[in-house]
């Protein structure tokens, strides 16, 4: 069997409790169980994680670079969407 037969998996690692899973990289594996084990060996061998997700790369729908302008350009000149314009009322501690 060659790697060409093995699907690609995306690996997400949660570095500690309370944080969300973050994309760590990708790998080849014959199935989900082996992908999880390979991810353990490749991405958590220096104590980086407490939890791993693996997702078939084929299951991910990604935005295309061609759509970059219509997708992201309109957000570039709307600074009023940033919360810097909002004044925090006095006395509010945990915002």
């Amino acid at each position: 069997m060659t790697t060409a037969d093995w699907p690609l998996w995306e690996v997400f690692v949660r570095s500690r409790r309370g944080l969300s899973h973050t994309h760590a990289g990708s790998l080849h594996a014959p199935d989900a169980e082996m992908a999880l084990r390979n991810a353990r060996d490749l991405y958590t061998r220096r104590g980086e994680g407490v939890s791993i997700w693996v997702v078939p790369s084929a299951a991910i729908t990604a935005s295309s670079p061609d759509e970059k302008d219509p997708f992201f350009e309109p957000a570039a000149d709307k600074p009023y969407r940033h919360p810097t314009f909002y004044e925090i009322p006095e006395g509010v501690k945990h915002l």
Binding site: T3, W6, H28, A29, R37, N38, D41, L42
Partner: peptide
């Protein structure tokens, strides 16, 4: 090793 992922597994 047959694949890179397995090489890391065996050497771990």
């Amino acid at each position: 090793a047959p694949v890179l992922e397995e090489e890391v597994a065996l050497t771990n």
